[in-house]
Design a protein around this nucleic acid. Sequence first.
DNA 1: AAACAGAGAGAGCGATCGCTCTCTCAAGGT
DNA 2: ACCTTGAGAGAGCGATCGCTCTCTCTGTTT
Lengths: 217, 217
Amino acid sequence: MEGMTSPSRSRTEKPSPARERLLTTASSLFYAEGIGSVGVGRIVDEGHVTLATLYRHFPSKQDLVVAYLQRVHDLIASRLDAAASTSSGRDLVLSIADGVTEELALPGFRGCAFLNAASEYEDAASPVRRVIAEHRGWYYELVRRALDEAGHPLPGSAARHFVLIRDGAMCAAYLEDDGAAARAFRRGVEGLLLSIDQERHVAPDPDDDLQQSAAAR
Amino acid sequence: MEGMTSPSRSRTEKPSPARERLLTTASSLFYAEGIGSVGVGRIVDEGHVTLATLYRHFPSKQDLVVAYLQRVHDLIASRLDAAASTSSGRDLVLSIADGVTEELALPGFRGCAFLNAASEYEDAASPVRRVIAEHRGWYYELVRRALDEAGHPLPGSAARHFVLIRDGAMCAAYLEDDGAAARAFRRGVEGLLLSIDQERHVAPDPDDDLQQSAAAR
DNA sequence: AAACAGAGAGAGCGATCGCTCTCTCAAGGT
DNA sequence: ACCTTGAGAGAGCGATCGCTCTCTCTGTTT
């Protein structure tokens, strides 16, 4: 399952040292202090770039924000795509979980970049929100396929649960103890994998995984 | 267990129609569009209040934000305190879970007000962040006590898990399908309550519930 | 050698930010 | 009748916002 393409952009933007510096500083500032509270002045100053150079590479601040989130996605996707090419099924699920717990323990961790960004953009049709939705959809798919390969009886709802506790762990690690959040998350994942081996009480099929509900209507 | 005091402020502020209008408009605007992106001008306009009146009641915008979050907390706390006085243990846990799922289905739901606010305030020592921490600590304690009364073998880590999936459900309901998020949350709560009756594999005591780790150091 | 693109430097645009100020007026308590 | 209080109305503060503009210099391409 190496053909897991991520929704990275077509890379029409040619690389450039100024652009790179711009995106790097913008990323750290946006993540650390929030998007709305960081002005373009700060970015050009700390990135040692001119205001004109910024607007030569990015038509507006919003494009910078989109590029920032795509950069974060690319970072995560490259790591997880690599993991998906070397492992699969249960091992892949555990690798994805490892990626989460490692992120929680990062020094400057301030929660999920996508969740934080989403709270600043009300309009779901906004370009920013679309990148967020794409990333989350991609992540959910990745987990769902891994759980399906692992033989989970309800990969769809299990993947939903996985993302649920991932998001919760991100919040808790930011606002409270990151170690406790990581442990709670890990135990949640273990509980999720537990229902693979045991056939136990399959529940009355909550949502998507069932194909007869789609056929029934 | 009716003595569950919530961290509401001492109510030194006397009520006033203008102040009430102010707080109501500010609350809806802050929640719907984010705190940073709503200026005081918008608030005084849509609240039909004068700028001077705003600053007569709130020394700064930040105080308005704190009052907004405390208002949200009071709303939640009054409902849950009422539930805690009529039920306890397992029933109380289910009541708290009901409160969550009901909130997810609310028309203008845009995620957890506290999580959204937290993403806009980097400094953990900020007054805003302190209200958030107080609320979350209060909520965690409430769930922990209910789970303890319900006879859960590890009420602390179980409460952590409860809050974890609650936060995740809030995020998922905002960004994706609120119905699916509610179902995933409910099944998580059911799984949590499952380990009460069955004594199954108590796990190697992950964090807080164990008292020997506190005594060992 | 000529031409061009990328980037630095910086003035400046209108708009909005959070916030302070004065002045007026109506209601209530003494 | 006095006077405090709360609130409306509105001008205005400096600062910052996102963004546009021109002008110069340097390095690469052809």
